[in-house]
């Protein structure tokens, strides 16, 4: 079967959606995201990227790939490599065998990415579906790019074996066997409940709605008078994580709302449609927070961390209410 590329907002859910469709189980990106309970919030002050904390609106890398195995009865194989040579050889063998291969890469070393977006972010996901026989270049399907792309072996090797936080170590993944149509009435409520647990019941105060409040407190403590440049870098980082790094807008809230609409249809539960509407509103709140932040960065309105912190606390309150309602609706 000819491989078919599709444009997605998030790399990991996009890769899995394409891979599953290729295997004969058409599943949307939003369904791949929701079914693996990938939505989250985490404020990780200890993990630093260029000196700034990591803020995540989803579960850690590989969570989607791993999380889809059980509901779809799919076995994924993961392989990492100590040497780039071995990793490259294995990729070539798998492609020669006609496999579709998922890879974890750094964004910085992928030459087809826009220059300004090439940061040292190591948890990007790309599919390899073939190799150009003449040039030896890999044919890649990068879900966040509109069309398929090619990449020279040397560049791909660097991207796969980049070091640092979340180093990919050449990770390759591919399915063994075929996925099967799940029992939606069982798997969907289970996946939704898991997300509500992550958002509401985390024992660690930096995850879920508590994490949003924790971030609000950190923003409030920023020194807007003494060091406005540092304060602006911090709040800019939050918005980058939320809007720029392939989230489909509003820190994945819209993509999860799309999943809830699909779930409503599959389960014939209109209540989930209403909840989806609420989540779209919450996503719009996140977008508004991003807009205010950007305006403050550009001095179009005065830099006011307290105002941003209050916006975040309002969002945390709304999300808390939302996920409680969602928990009831999925029961």
């Amino acid at each position: 079967m000819e491989f078919q590329h599709s444009h997605a907002s998030h790399c990991e859910s996009g890769v899995m959606s394409s891979m599953l469709r290729h295997l004969g189980l058409p599943i949307s990106e939003a369904m791949a995201f929701g079914l693996s309970s990938a939505l989250s919030f985490a404020y990780l002050p200890i993990v630093k990227i260029n000196g700034l904390p990591l803020i995540a609106y989803r579960m850690p890398p590989k969570f989607i790939i791993k999380g889809l195995q059980k509901p779809l009865g799919l076995k994924m194989r993961f392989e990492t490599f100590r040497s780039p040579e071995a990793g490259e050889r294995r990729l070539n063998d798998l492609l020669d065998a006609g496999k579709l291969v998922g890879m974890q890469t750094s964004v910085f070393w992928l030459p087809y990415m826009p220059e300004d977006l090439r940061f040292h972010f190591n948890a990007h996901n790309v599919l390899a579906y073939g190799r150009d026989t003449a040039s030896g270049d890999y044919q890649l399907s990068d879900p966040v790019v509109e069309t398929t792309v090619t990449c020279a072996p040397a560049d791909l090797r660097r991207a796969r074996f980049a070091k640092g936080v979340l180093a990919p170590k050449g990770l390759l993944y591919y399915p063994e066997g075929k996925p099967s149509e799940p029992d939606w009435a069982r798997v969907l409520p289970k996946a939704i409940k898991k997300t509500t647990r992550i958002m509401l019941d985390s024992p660690i105060p930096i995850i879920g709605t508590r994490g949003i409040r924790r971030l609000a407190n950190a923003i409030e403590r920023l020194d807007a008078q003494g060091n406005p440049a540092a304060a602006k870098m911090f709040i800019g980082q939050v918005v980058r994580m939320q809007e720029e790094i392939g989230t489909g807008g509003g820190g994945f809230r819209f993509i999860y709302a799309a999943f809830l609409q699909e779930a409503a249809e599959r389960l014939a539960r209109p209540a989930l449609n209403e909840l989806s509407d609420t989540l779209i509103d919450i996503g719009d709140d996140w977008r508004e927070f991003a807009l205010s932040t950007a305006r403050m960065i550009r001095d179009r309105e005065p830099l006011n961390p307290t105002k941003l912190a209050d916006k975040l606390r309002a969002i945390a309150d709304r999300e808390q209410g939302f996920f409680r309602d969602l928990r009831r609706a999925a029961a």
């Binding site: 977006l117 940061f119 870098m233 800019g236 980082q237 918005v239 809007e243 720029e244 932040t293 950007a294």
Partner: peptide, 11 residues
């Protein structure tokens, strides 16, 4: 979106 542009450009 201009917002993305502002924060990316900032970094």
């Amino acid at each position: 979106w201009e917002v993305e542009e502002i924060v990316t450009r900032q970094a």
